[in-house]
Design a binder for these strands. Structure first.
Length: 312
DNA sequence: GCGACAG
DNA sequence: ATCTTGTCGC
């Protein structure tokens, strides 16, 4: 019974996705645009966001999309939201955004509506930014769709543009001495696509940092370093930990409700009259509104209404 | 046939 | 991504 949850990736779909990446790539800003980025101590930076999606072992469709916002420099959780979603695309290297991005953008939109004051000033994204087959990874994709400064944080080297995780690369990793040490990742094209960063004094594996949107590589590396209590920067780490916890509790609740149903359906109705949704019970900060249809995902720019144009 | 393959 | 306990070390 090994049915694939998603149809085979059609060549036409991949080519459409490539065209969309190429088109959106033109809008990426790969330098600092925010005032707080100018100061070496990040004065004026108060909120750093992290996003992550957690999966269920035997389930190719259901997943938990999470957004957290941490204070800076304290790195304490100010906001979190977790939501079970139904994935519509498989994981294909180079096309991660088409699997994950719409759910993460939705979470940002709900935050904007509910608690605009908690909107993060920069978003850390699991995966790559411009360090990508076509220079437009998931961190760039989220950045363009939300207009937020974004940084790509990958745990493994994506071997593109001549970059290889070979002996030479491993040797460079060995040479990283203390937390904050880096070496550049230069592609065959000659441009620096990202940086390998030893984010913690005792972590043998580096992080691979790249520009997503509205931040320079230098600032990105500096900020990631400043957000690391452990190897994984705290915003992403908290999103990951809390997302898994939400999945675990959701499964437990679903199982207990299933057992209850089999044991006595009619008694169940008598005992707990108002049926409460798992999301409501487990996460009070979950979004309030009904799941709404997004008419054309991926087509909306400036979703947060942050257009800087002056009123006419 | 072999290697690569962010999450 | 996910499955998983202990184990070694600071």
């Amino acid at each position: 019974m090994a049915h694939e949850a998603f149809g085979p990736p059609l060549r036409e779909t991949l080519s459409r996705w490539k065209r969309e990446q190429a088109q959106l790539k033109a809008s990426v800003i790969d330098h600092d645009t925010e005032a707080w980025q100018q100061k070496t101590d990040f004065t004026g930076l108060f909120r750093v966001g992290g996003v992550d999606i957690s999966f269920i072992k035997g389930d190719d469709v259901r997943a938990c999309a999470s957004l957290v916002v941490l204070s800076y420099p304290e790195l304490e959780v100010l906001y979190e939201e977790h939501r079970m979603v139904n994935l519509t695309a498989p994981y294909i290297s180079g096309f991660l955004a088409f699997r994950e991005v719409s759910f993460l953008v939705d979470a940002i939109q709900r935050l904007q509506k509910k608690k605009p004051d908690l909107m993060p000033q920069v978003l850390l994204v699991d995966g790559n930014g411009v360090l990508h087959h076509r220079g437009f990874g998931v961190a760039c994709h989220i950045g363009i769709l939300t207009d937020l400064p974004c940084i790509g944080v990958a745990k493994k080297l994506l071997q593109v543009d001549g970059l290889k995780n070979n002996d030479l690369h491993k040797e460079k990793i060995q040479h990283l001495k203390t937390g904050g040490d880096t070496f550049p990742l230069m592609g065959d094209s000659g441009s620096i696509l990202g940086m390998a960063l030893k984010s913690h004094n005792k972590s043998s594996k580096p992080l691979y940092i790249s520009v997503g949107h509205k931040v320079s590589l230098e600032t990105a590396v500096h900020l990631i370093q400043a957000c690391c209590r452990y190897r994984i920067p705290e915003p992403i780490r908290q999103a990951d930990i809390r997302s898994r916890e939400y999945v675990r509790r959701t499964i437990e609740l679903a199982n207990s409700q299933e057992a209850e149903k089999e044991r006595g359906p009619q008694r169940q109705r008598e005992m707990q009259s108002p049926t409460v949704s798992p999301a409501r019970v487990l996460q009070e900060s979950a979004g309030e509104e009904r799941p709404s249809e997004n008419p054309c995902p991926g087509q909306s720019y400036e979703i947060l209404g942050q257009s800087s144009e002056a009123p006419s």
